[in-house]
Write a protein that binds this DNA or RNA. Sequence first.
DNA 1: ATATAATATTGCAATATTACGATGAAATCA
DNA 2: TGATTTCATCGTAATATTGCAATATTATAT
Lengths: 111, 111
Amino acid sequence: MGATKTDFYSEDQNKLSVIAKALGHPARIAIVDYLLKVDTCICGDIVSELPLAQATISQHLRELKNAELIKGTIEGTAICYCINKTTLNIFADYLSLVGQRLEMDKTNCCP
Amino acid sequence: MGATKTDFYSEDQNKLSVIAKALGHPARIAIVDYLLKVDTCICGDIVSELPLAQATISQHLRELKNAELIKGTIEGTAICYCINKTTLNIFADYLSLVGQRLEMDKTNCCP
DNA sequence: ATATAATATTGCAATATTACGATGAAATCA
DNA sequence: TGATTTCATCGTAATATTGCAATATTATAT
C-alpha cells in the first residue's frame, strides 16, 4: 500500500491536490515567498537563501515546476524562475469558491 | 534524512505548508468537496462516498483536523464534521496576497 | 580545448505517507 | 444486559518524500 488511488477522483480533485501538495513543504513556500520578495524572476541565488544543499533545492524546484507553480527559462548558465500565475489562480479560485459556499449556507452547523 | 527542517522557516511558512499539505491528497480534497456539497456538516456517510476503507478515511479526517481545516463534534454515535472557515481563509488570503503582488510587479519576467 | 559557474541527476539512507485488516471505545437500541 | 452502529487506533506492508554527497550536464569565458 502507500500508493494513492488517483483513478477514482475527478480531474479537478487530482489537479488541486497536486498543486496543494507542491505547496505542502515549508521550503517550497519559502521559495515562492522569495520569488515574490525579489520582485522579479530570480536567476540563481536561491541556494544561499535556504539552509539546504543545492541538490535538495533543485529537487524542490523540480516539484514546483512539475506542479506548474513556477516556470523557468534558461538565461546563460543560470536559470530564471518565476511564479506561474495561472496555476496559482486555479488554487486561489478553488479556495474562494469554497469560501463563498461557506458564506451562503450557514445552516446549523457544528459550533 | 527525510525529516523536514522546520526550524529555519517562519511560523507563517510552516503553518501555510501544513494547511497545503493537508489539502495535498485527492481524497482530502474530495472530503472537503463533499462537506461543501451536502450543504451542512455531515454526520457519518463519508465512508460510502469514497473508495477507501473506513480506517483510511478516519486517518484522512484526522489529518484535516490536525491542520485545523475541519472540526468535528460528537453527535450521538456519529460525529459531525464541517469546514473550519478560519483556517481556510488563512490560505486563501495568502494566495490572494501572492496574486496581488504578481499583478503589481510585472517587471520583465520570464516569458 | 580547458576551466569555471550554475543547475540537474543519481544513488542512497532516514523518515513519512497511504492504505487496510483487526481490534478497541463510546453511544444507542432491543 | 447484549447486540449494533460509528468512529478511532494499532500494527503492518507498500510506497513516497526529504536531504545530501557525488557526479553529470550545460553554457560561458579564457
